[in-house]
Amino acid sequence: MRLVAHDMASRPISGKNSLLNWWMCMVASSSAAKTWQWLQSNPTFTELAQAHPQEWLTVRDELAAVFARRDAAELKALVSKAAQRMEPDAKFLSGERDGRAFELFVHHQIRQRLTEQALRQYAFSAATGVKSGKVRFNLLNGLLAQKLLFEKDLIRKPVSMRAFRLIWPLLWQKRLLMPLVEKRGIWCFYSRELIAGLAQLIGHRRTVEIAAGDGTLSRFLAEQGVDITATDDYSWEKVVKYPESVQRLDAISALSRFQPKVVICSWPPSANHFERQIFRQREVETYIVIGSHSRFITGNWADYEAQTFFAWQEHAELSQLILPPELKAGVWVFQRKVSP
């Protein structure tokens, strides 16, 4: 009886601990699952930092230490690491997403995204000169910018290079432009001369724009007679207002459906996974990238350098026609190599 009594006395305590541990694991796993689902909506840097302040403090301290050492190789390695995205399916079976390992995986992804976006903001600040605080145009600068760059509201127009060279120097608040319009998914402006040059490069070939955003570039090229379809997976709906002319398709689906000869992408996200699919399509003859010279603002440079089917180079004359020049943007053209 004593043995039985001892067991009966001890089991409730053990049972409570087990139940508590199980409950805590369930809460943690549920929280991790919800956080992972939230991450798929591409939260902004501010949203990430506010939702996970402790992780941001850790990332901030790590970045401060790296910048203080001024080691170019270390910074390059950090950029490369921050750009890596893992899917849980690559590491976890569906039945393994209820434990501590998945929770740690999600926290690691939060830190990676905070690091990536902090680095992008650093590079963007270096390009625009805006470090912090709210930014606003005064009345005169706002009127000049509106007249120069937009048809109405925030609908962009092809910018005359002649008009740009005359008006742009008059804006003493020019460094505020990109931080203001970036919030609406505008990463650059296109000159008339750039559109004409791209239209000539494309010719009459079937063209698809991937990650087209609001479809501005496709609209301009179509007005020049280019046979082009704008597509986007709508993953930036919180920032970009997608018109009906932009078909809701991810890059792979767009390439499969339209089988274009030419693909164009303006400001592809850094270290994205969709550009590599372009190099695998036998129908594609030319791929045109408009983006930043900063390798952690736009483009998957690792895939650019790893692919072997296309010869590629920057078209400097077209790069000079992307506005504003402070962005230090470029146009890179990938041309399929001719088989011997």
Rank of each mutant, 00 (worst) to 15 (best):
A5L: 13
L148T: 01
V181N: 02
A83S: 14
P243V: 14
G197A: 14
A196W: 14
W301K: 07
C265E: 13
I322A: 04
A90W: 12
S160V: 04
F137G: 00
Q224M: 11
A72C: 09
Q247F: 11
S31I: 06
H6M: 14
T216K: 10
D232I: 07
L198K: 15
Q277Y: 14
A196G: 13
W301E: 10
I228S: 07
A212H: 00
G330V: 09
Q320L: 12
L321V: 07
R60T: 12
W267G: 01
V106R: 00
H52E: 06
E47K: 03
Y234H: 01
A329I: 03
R162E: 15
R336Q: 00
L194R: 05
L139H: 06
S256D: 15
D303R: 06
W187D: 14
E193S: 12
R136H: 11
L171S: 04
T286Y: 05
G215H: 05
A77F: 05
G95K: 01
K337F: 02
A33E: 07
W267N: 07
S94W: 01
I202V: 13
P53L: 02
T115N: 00
W172P: 01
K261T: 12
W22P: 00
P260Q: 08
W312Y: 12
S41R: 08
F105P: 05
A306P: 00
R2C: 11
K34Y: 03
F92W: 00
A82E: 12
L39A: 04
N17P: 01
D153A: 11
D303P: 04
T229W: 12
S191V: 14
I278N: 06
R336A: 00
E283N: 10
S31E: 12
T286V: 11
K241G: 05
L177R: 02
Q146K: 03
L19H: 02
E74C: 11
G129R: 04
E275S: 14
M86D: 13
A83C: 12
T286R: 10
N42T: 11
S218Y: 11
D153M: 04
P324M: 03
S319E: 00
R156Q: 14
R70L: 08
A212G: 02
D71G: 00
L177N: 02
S235V: 05
K152L: 03
I297E: 09
F45M: 13
